[in-house]
């Protein structure tokens, strides 16, 4: 009897998950597929890039700078034991470009922009703004969801690029300017070990994948929540937790596939 109950519970859990994935796919499909209306949606897109991307720059730049500086400091103290300070640039750049850049940016983005999007769309739903849009023959998926999706997919890779560059310069600030690693060796070691296609393009691919994941989870959680105050708070939490886990898991899969 106990085992039967367990299986039943598992089954209902699995069914709920599956139907949620199905609803999420349908939402994404209807918001993205259709006759493109660039002129109508472009101002919306610009506005959302401003909210999602531009307003996240400060946190991205500050955390990138400090992560680069910490990497420079820690790396220097380990490498100096082996008389290998010259490899500091290589180490900082590889760590940031391959892993920390895409992953940390996506995590910060999920916390900074993803949760805000969920709460915004959730409140629109709770106050029946989405329903009234439908009454006015405006498709809320095309009008609300689509510009936010594209804004996220455009913004996160750009933020990742900024994070990566700032992080490397943070490492350079500590390693070269404070601790006295040679400037030329720092940069030339980096350039010899980093390949444009193998490293930078993989970084870009990763960040695009993370962008789609994070923004999709955030939008779906907002669109699908129970329209109460408790529901909004739950959905916001879900967004941050689920997208962080998804980013970390996907990062492992992508690294295993690509490198």
């Amino acid at each position: 009897m106990f085992i039967l109950n367990l299986i039943l519970k598992l089954g209902s859990w699995g069914q709920r998950r599956l139907s949620a994935i199905g609803r999420a796919t349908i939402m994404l499909f209807y918001s993205l597929v259709g006759r493109p209306q660039f002129r109508k949606n472009f101002p919306q897109l610009i506005r959302q890039i401003y909210v999602v991307g531009v307003q996240s720059i400060s946190i991205i730049v500050v955390s990138g700078l400090f992560i680069g500086m910490v990497l420079g400091l820690q790396g220097f103290h380990v490498l100096v034991d082996f008389m290998a300070e010259g490899a500091l640039g290589q180490m900082v750049a590889l760590a940031i470009i391959r892993e920390l850049g895409p992953v940390v940016t996506a995590l910060l983005f999920a916390g900074r922009a993803g949760s805000a999007l969920t709460a915004e769309i959730g409140l629109k739903k709770a106050t029946e703004q989405l329903l009234s849009m439908e009454m006015m023959a405006v498709d809320p998926l095309r009008r609300v969801i689509a510009p936010r999706f594209w804004a996220g997919v455009i913004s996160l890779p750009l933020l990742t690029i900024i994070f990566t560059l700032v992080g490397i310069f943070g490492g350079k600030l500590v390693g070269v300017d404070w601790l006295g690693v040679d400037d030329g060796i720092f940069w030339s070691g980096m350039q010899s070990s980093i390949d444009f296609w193998d490293d930078l393009m993989m970084c870009a691919i990763k960040s695009v994948v993370f962008a789609i994941t994070v923004i999709w989870i955030a939008l779906f959680n907002g669109y699908d929540l129970v329209p109460t105050s408790v529901g909004i708070s739950k959905a916001t939490t879900n967004t941050v937790v689920q997208s962080s886990l998804a980013v970390l898991g996907l990062d492992f899969v992508l690294t295993a596939v690509m490198f």
């Binding site: 750049a93 470009i97 690029i161 900024i162 990566t164 560059l165 490397i168 940069w187 980096m190 350039q191 010899s192 980093i194 390949d195 444009f196 490293d199 930078l200």
Partner: peptide
């Protein structure tokens, strides 16, 4: 930033 990365970091 992207161009700088490509030129300065990836050489």
């Amino acid at each position: 930033c992207g161009v700088l990365l490509a030129l300065k970091v990836a050489g």
